[in-house]
Structure formats: structure tokens, C-alpha cells
């Protein structure tokens, strides 16, 4: 699909607007429909489109798997971290009232932080799953393992011969 100019141009043009829409859904979730779960999937969709049109290797350059896997945990940590922060500020776990001067403002801060954590976890989990599914290769691996075993055996043999 990499050599089709229509797909290539359109997917590159759509990449930024999709992410912008995802951010809108993420941070406008207090006022309209949406929130972290939906925004996470939309942002991951932009990367998946890129990976489908260009190759998986290009996608791995854009979003290195190690960073994606770390972001999976970071999102959940941000969520739990907000809970710990409210703990330390002297309220119950995840009681956002204490995060700012007055309760309603604190609730706004808390909800935006928590939704950001949810969005981060969902986006990176979905992207990680896509990369794992698309990069999954049984026959190649078994072939490689057999080759390696054969190489190892011949090396062992050589070593014993020596």
C-alpha cells in the first residue's frame, strides 16, 4: 500500500486532523460526549492508519514499542497518582475537592487529570495490541529457531571436534 499515491497523501493529510479530533474529544468530554476512552481509541486510530498505509516498521519508528508499553503503565499511574495526591492533601482517595481553592475547581482539575490518564492507557494499549497483532509471525520464528538450533548444534560439534 506504500506505493499508492492516493492512500499515501490522504493518510498523511488525515493524520494530524484525527489526532486533533482525539484531543478535542479528550478535553471537551466535560461539555459534550466523549472522554478518555473514546479519545484514546481515536488517537490510536491515527497511528494505526499510518501503520497500515506505510509499513509496521515505519510505525515502530514513529511510536517505538518500548515507549508505547511504558505509556500503558503511565496512564494508570497518573490515575492512581491523583488518588494518592488527594490522600496526601487530606481527603479521601479520589476526592478531587481538595485539589484547588474551592471544590468545583478541584473537581475540574481532578476529572481532566483522570481522563488524561485513561486516554493515555487506552491509546497506548490499543496501539500496542495492534503492533503485536500485525508483527506476530509464527512460521518465521520457528524457522529462525530451527536455524539457530542447527547453528548451535554445528557450533557445539565444532567445539567438541576441537
Amino acid at each position: 500500500m506504500k506505493n499508492n499515491p492516493i492512500l499515501r497523501v490522504i493518510s498523511k493529510t488525515l493524520f494530524a486532523p484525527i489526532i486533533l479530533y482525539g484531543l478535542y474529544v479528550q478535553f471537551h468530554g466535560d461539555f459534550g460526549p466523549g472522554g478518555g476512552f473514546q479519545a484514546g481509541v481515536i488517537i490510536a486510530a491515527a497511528f494505526i492508519l499510518y501503520g497500515m498505509v506505510f509499513s509496521l516498521d515505519e510505525l515502530k519508528l514513529l511510536a517505538p514499542p518500548s515507549i508505547v508499553h511504558a505509556l500503558m503503565a503511565l496512564g494508570a499511574l497518573i490515575y492512581a497518582g491523583v488518588g494518592i495526591a488527594t490522600f496526601l492533601l487530606g481527603a479521601e482517595f479520589l476526592n478531587y475537592d481538595v485539589l484547588a481553592d474551592y471544590p468545583a475547581k478541584g473537581q475540574h482539575y481532578g476529572i481532566i487529570l483522570v481522563e488524561f490518564g485513561v486516554g493515555l492507557t487506552v491509546a497506548s494499549t490499543i496501539l500496542g495490541l495492534f503492533m503485536a497483532f500485525a508483527g506476530f509471525d509464527i512460521p518465521k520464528n520457528t524457522a529462525r529457531d530451527k536455524n539457530r538450533k542447527a547453528v548451535g548444534r554445528s557450533q557445539n560439534k565444532r567445539a567438541s571436534d576441537d
Binding site: 466535560d30 472522554g35 473537581q107 475540574h108 481532578g110 476529572i111
Partner: peptide
């Protein structure tokens, strides 16, 4: 917050 779904879900 106008969206009650968000307040129930997140708060």
C-alpha cells in the same frame, strides 16, 4: 460540568 456522564464516570 454539563455532561453528567463524565461526572458520574470520573468523579
Amino acid at each position: 460540568i454539563p455532561n453528567v456522564v463524565t461526572t458520574v464516570l470520573a468523579s
